[in-house]
Write a protein that binds this DNA or RNA. Structure first.
Lengths: 302, 302
DNA sequence: GGTCTCGAGGAACTTCAGGTTCACCGGAGG
DNA sequence: CCTCCGGTGAACCTGAAGTTCCTCGAGACC
């Protein structure tokens, strides 16, 4: 019995397909078929019921899966704990959303450099749905993004939550004092890229209050901030990412009654026997996020 | 990472020697060296401190050993639970002491035949020290004997305890009524083979009462029973092994004040990744022993 | 009904991890 | 100083596992 075989078994069970599991494990479908057949022969039991339609676990297989997952998890844990950080090498491809870039990402990069001097980070700023797809398709190793995302085998690790506030340039003619959501909707709204999860929050925010006709502009966070400081409109942004603009007076927080929902950041990766780094870096990210929140107003970040 | 490598690591840690571990694992010392080196390279840490004197675990190695044992145990457990009994084949070499032969061994053989039809049992009756040595040297797979025995990697599983009573032939001129230990010592004493653990009990029994000069004869249990029924002397024997002789009146139990110590039976085997049968048969032996005790006077067997 | 597609399984060949053999080395001990 | 003992390193070998390619069976679609 072999850990790789158990891992293969788990992936076939998760994805209910030999060929998808093969793809995920970077091997051929025949190899997966062979591994499962070997396991079944070794144990003398049938793990999967196959027909041309799909692949299902047998009752014994369901049992076996639980055991197998425990063993593989324990083995991964062993590696993670025992491995010497200095000996880790290679490249980790990380997908990040802008919110992370503008909060604790620099700290994380610094800490990774210190802890794993021979590890190269390849950072890709993108939006959550793109990142999660890239992780599932093996183009990225780790995502730092909105969550959680539910997909077979995807580990979601919560990092922190950031409060969002409506902000505007002081130059913009926004009345002083408490604002209703309708007051906000009179201005152009600057939102995140159309297919991003954050864009959905903005649209949902107004829909819940029955407001339909809003003027929406979309852009990435950096551009958003720039446009907002330029007085193009209002934006709901995690306050921790615009500390400088608020301090300098380039942006001011608007006291809107209907609170904009906070966003939760997650680290995500596929648990793989031969890739110890993603969970380790996810752990560091959690540490960085916690440290970051501790140094901020608990109303803004927790 | 590979379960076989972890198992090798554990054995080197247990035996504190590469070559002994190699012997135990039926491979060459170079292979063991290679496996450890691979593990150490993979983890980037040193697991053992070697010098010409001996092999010791490093502090990190001590940590690793605990994790490794947990993983290997879980994997063995997985096999044991999932494996289809009907698919098990091969020969299991079992060492048994006579007490087991004369109590529940036939039941065990029957049950094994039913549960594992393709498994061949090779039985060897011997005394405890011989059996345990044969297990440690790989000449036997399982022992059913006195215990416990403490040796690295040896699993001791308690099965049952049998009370021992002094018995004699009614033909022998043993006075009726309660006997003192000194009364017993006046007769020739029939004991177990000199190097057996049971022989030690007999000698110790008299020594504790300060009795030195006893006439001792030694033989295996079967011969012992025969000699005792023939009136050669007295013997302290597990009552459950001489039920027939007592029922027929060939032997009678002597009411000796100083109780002879009961004996505990254990199943013993070396936990090995690729040998699922010994623990399974040990489990069946425990079941047989429990059933056997349940059908006897709880004062005789428990 | 023919045929197209999709996924599992099987056969033959290839690859490489891991094993074996053997020479070497360093310390202990006569 | 020599020898023994036990671990290491290197070269070569073996076999388990992987790859490639083919077959097969079951829908799905025309």
């Amino acid at each position: 019995m072999n850990l790789k075989f158990l891992e293969t078994f788990i992936w076939v069970a998760r994805l209910k397909s030999f060929s998808l599991a093969a793809e995920r494990l970077n091997t051929t479908q025949a190899a997966v078929s062979h591994r499962i057949a070997t396991l079944e022969r070794e144990l003398g039991i049938r793990l999967f019921e196959r027909d041309s339609r799909d692949v299902r676990l047998t009752p014994l297989g369901i049992d076996a899966r639980e055991h197998a997952e425990r063993i593989v998890r324990l083995a991964a844990d062993f590696r993670r704990r025992m491995i010497n950080p200095a000996s880790l090498t290679g490249t980790v491809r990380i997908g990040v959303i802008d919110t992370v870039v503008y909060s604790w990402l620099p700290t994380l990069i610094e800490r990774v450099r210190e802890a794993y001097p021979d590890v190269v980070l390849e950072l890709n700023a993108a939006i959550t749905p793109e990142i999660s797809e890239d992780i599932l398709d093996g183009r990225l190793d780790l995502g730092l993004m909105n969550g959680p995302v539910d997909a077979p085998g995807l580990v979601n690790r919560q990092l922190c939550t950031f409060a969002c506030q409506w902000v505007a340039s002081p130059a913009l003619a926004v009345p002083d004092g408490p604002l209703e959501i309708e007051d906000v909707a009179r201005f152009p709204i600057l939102s995140f890229p159309t297919s991003s999860s954050r864009h959905g929050s903005v649209v949902g925010y107004f829909q819940r209050s029955g407001i339909e006709n809003i003027r929406l502009h979309t852009a990435s966070l950096a551009t958003l901030i720039r446009l907002t400081t330029d007085g193009v409109g209002l934006a709901a942004i995690p306050t921790v990412t615009i500390e400088r603009e608020i301090a300098s007076g380039a942006l001011r927080i608007l006291p809107v009654r209907t609170e904009f929902p906070a966003i939760s950041l997650y680290a995500m990766y596929l648990e793989m026997e031969d890739r110890p780094l993603p969970p380790l870096i996810a752990q560091m990210a959690a540490d960085c996020a916690t440290a970051f929140c501790a140094s901020r107003d608990p109303a803004d970040a927790w």
